[in-house]
Design a protein around this nucleic acid. Structure first.
Lengths: 151, 151
DNA sequence: ATAGTTGCAAAAGTTTTGCATTGTA
DNA sequence: TACAATGCAAAACTTTTGCAACTAT
């Protein structure tokens, strides 16, 4: 059995989230009440193009920018946004969840030293040779993480 | 630019860890003193073929089998084994580290419902189209996790 | 002795839960 | 007024650290 793979070389250029629009509308469309905290967190997440944040980072940012919000609410909001399809959760490192504002199919470089994630556009990397999944299961999604170290 | 990939379909059959041998020797070879706890944890890890464990799971197993050992020591031991190249740490799920007794290059199915990992032999999956890493960095390692859900 | 190592109690870090409060109809 | 949804303090869970006890010269 053969296979053809066209190799491209594209990094994502950021800022291709669905249009920031008015947060209120977006939240309602997702079935979430547009509360003060959610509006503020939504602005922080989606105003600046594609982002990879931890709960701790977003909380710090919210507090710095003047919003009174607890870390617990940031966690709950991030999970609600995930459930609503506005965010995707990434497992990159034990004991710390990252949330990605880009929910389309794509992959990541991870710079271990800097704890930094860089998007790789979804049509760049090809994965071939995936075995048939065990009986009774189907593939939900394939994660590829390319771990980088300093040269 | 073209590419050929031969698609195989191989799951790992387990029990292909480097020979269990005597743990004492293995630990010494890795530069670790063969203490009672390390010997016992090493037996649990390497006697049974390839395994994917969390610290909590291994601790529970050790205690059940009669060893007096704290969870902290299990963590420390797992990390020492990793540093010595006897184990590899996997980031599969936020906030829980898995340790794999198979340190060779291979990939994983992850069954979300059961929290179960299944090895896929290293020569099965091919990843093509990886972009050039950012200046000053090199690829240390590519993780592919195929997430499964019940049909 | 003593220099280095080990194992664990306690501390730190991360995430989830329970419920008083708020918001909506 | 009733009913559901929200936000956060507190609880739970996961991991790391500091140091007393131990080991091997």
């Amino acid at each position: 059995m053969g296979w053809h793979v066209t190799v491209t070389n594209t990094l994502m250029t950021g800022a291709q989230t669905t249009e920031p629009g008015d947060m209120g509308g977006r939240l309602k469309a997702a079935g979430l009440r547009p509360t003060r905290q959610r509006l503020h967190l939504g602005e922080l997440l989606f105003r600046k193009g594609d982002r990879h944040v931890t709960a701790e980072m977003l909380h710090e940012e919210a507090v710095s920018s003047g919003e009174r919000v607890s870390l617990a609410t940031v966690y709950n909001t991030l999970h609600q946004f995930c459930a609503a399809g506005l965010l995707r959760e990434l497992a990159i490192e034990g004991s710390k969840a990252y949330f990605d504002t880009n929910t389309s199919n794509h992959n990541h470089f991870y710079l271990e030293k800097e704890n930094q994630l860089i998007d790789i556009a979804g049509d760049t990397i090809r994965v071939a040779g995936v075995p048939t999944p065990p009986e009774g299961t189907i593939i939900s999604h394939i994660d590829v993480v390319i771990r980088l170290v300093s040269k």
